[in-house]
Write a protein that binds this DNA or RNA. Structure first.
Lengths: 336, 336
DNA sequence: TTGAAAGCGCTAACAG
DNA sequence: CTGTTAGCGCTTTCAA
């Protein structure tokens, strides 16, 4: 037989299946002798309990669905890595779903996950998912994006990140910083932070929207022609490190000196991104802390506990200055 | 009841469970009337078939395990994304495992996957897995690394990549190119390509080994001090784009002009890496083709077909020249 | 301390 | 065209 089953072990050990199950789950009273007998039988048969059968009979599959736009993206890749690691530590397995930001795909994945009896779902892509959350049948935790609806959410302090990034640009002498983002909606907290920081200096600001589905090459063109069109722009706050990196490339192409002519700061600060672009200033998300909190809240919900945080859980960001920002201005001594 | 089951649908539709199962699987002859009755009952109950139960009773779980060092790494992230997409298209779900290159972790993940009755495993991390392959119980396809043992492998032409990268550096005037890699083992085909290309020009070459577990900051130091120590080095072939990017940063720090003083070429060319470092020359792996082939071979094996390729499946690389290589030399006209 | 029996939700014979 | 029966591998009452 290919895969030995519990009853095979029982037969070899000369006990009942129930007993084998007991030693497997370390439940109830067993004599030392039976235990070792059973263990030995398991060894010799190379027995491996069938997780599927266990899930079927019990209520929990120990499966968690992860739904992200794409793990190819450095931020989501890092996040997925962290989440999977923490879930594995807690004895959970991770089903990976790349929804590509396509709502139908999200929907299909969600159906699939529920059909597979996942104990919970973590998502960073939630047009669909959040709407269905109340009636979903499995706990959901959302990550990163501002929540819509009432699903538990863990994210970094996007507003503060936007505010601090922009303030930093201004502190270092920027007069006209632009914000580059995918889409400038009203719920975009990074944008709000940017605007508020500018407002304090009486500046209005400008936003370049790249769109979600725009092909990469086109985005490059948009950035380049924008920088070209507004030569007075002297700083960029990009809503993620990819865009920031693209700005760096465009600047090089346009012979703009960074940070002299143009200061640049990004957002995310995933380790591999930092490794590839160590000079890029960025607002660093506490990725691992977010992952840990998300897992903790999900497991909490799975355990049937009330979610006392009721909604969002906002973690602090930190700023990495790199060398795409100008040096700190020495305190000016007023001489007049 | 929370989740309606097949028998609930049967009851509501006034038929037997078998019949419901039949319409679900579209098997056998059904009267149109029963079909629609059953469908309606499913609709009103919001029925969703329990995949776990199906797997238990049937033989296949439609689950595939993906074992990689870390999806946070741009190359593996992209690969995982592609693999998951192709697997989903074929109706398979993906269990994600980040082994971090720790053999015990690989072992634990493998056990977990088999316990979960995965129909197959795809891995890019196979110290352990490959060894056990013959007795594993589920088909395995390995990716990227040179195979050890007899497991089916899909990868790019690492030797050719190394050869062409190095040849290109030489063509563009390099006299002393160094190869930077994690570990310079005998089975390192990129290194072999590098050496052979150099040999044709009568050059010996030099290798800097960074190690697998070395912390990032330390790797940076190693590169910087190496470049410092051998000022005659005029080109770098890095075994991946991260190392190449690190070389770029070090060069900047050391005031080495790229490509004038130092030419650089990397390896991998994942799209997000390309977006972030568009000027970096690199040997591009055909990531999506590799993913497609790997999935095809795995499904083939799952279907019980013989694997006619018996071992490796090597896909061609392409070279992206960026601007970290010197310009092509104009054909010299001999005047003497 | 152990076993027998029932059943998790579904499908696959085998009737009819 | 449809239903009955049995069983996937395991755990869980309930008894002994």
């Amino acid at each position: 037989m290919s895969q030995p089953k519990l009853s095979d072990v029982a037969a070899l050990a000369g006990v009942s299946p129930t007993t084998v199950s007991r030693v497997l789950n370390n439940r109830g009273y067993l004599s030392e002798k039976t235990r070792s007998n059973v263990f030995e039988a398991m060894k010799t048969l190379g027995y491996r309990p069938n997780a599927i059968a266990r899930s079927l009979q019990g209520r929990k599959s120990q499966l968690i669905g992860l739904v992200f736009p794409s793990v190819a993206h450095p931020f989501y890749g890092e996040m997925a890595y962290r989440l999977e690691s923490h879930l594995a530590d807690a004895g959970y397995k991770t089903i990976l779903c790349n929804s590509g930001d396509r709502p139908e795909a999200e929907q299909r994945y969600l159906d699939m996950l529920l059909a597979n009896q996942v104990d919970g779902v973590i998502t960073g892509a939630h047009s669909q998912l959040v709407a269905q959350f109340p009636l979903m049948g499995a706990p959901l935790v959302t990550i990163d994006r501002a929540e819509t609806g009432k699903a538990p959410n863990v994210r970094c302090d996007n507003y503060d990140g936007g505010y601090r990034a922009t303030s930093l640009l201004l502190e270092r002498g920027a007069k006209e910083p632009v914000h580059i983002t995918s889409t400038a909606s009203e719920v975009n907290l990074r944008l709000r932070g940017y605007r508020d920081a500018l407002a304090e200096h009486g500046i209005t600001g400008r936003t370049l929207e790249l769109g979600f589905d725009t092909p990469h090459a086109h985005k490059m063109e948009m950035i380049a022609s924008y920088l070209d069109q507004y030569p007075t722009l002297d700083a960029v706050f990009a809503s993620n490190d990819i865009y920031a990196a693209m700005v760096l490339s465009c600047a090089q192409r346009l012979r703009l000196e960074v940070p002299t002519d143009l200061q640049v700061i990004g957002f995310d600060g995933a380790p591999y991104t930092r490794a590839m672009l160590p000079h890029l200033a960025t607002v660093m998300q506490p990725i691992d802390e977010i992952a840990q909190r998300a897992v903790a809240r999900l497991l909490h919900a799975i355990a049937g506990q009330e979610d006392d945080l009721d909604g969002a859980d906002v973690l602090p960001v930190s700023v990495y200055e790199g060398s795409t920002l100008r040096q700190k201005q020495p305190d000016r001594v007023s001489l007049d």
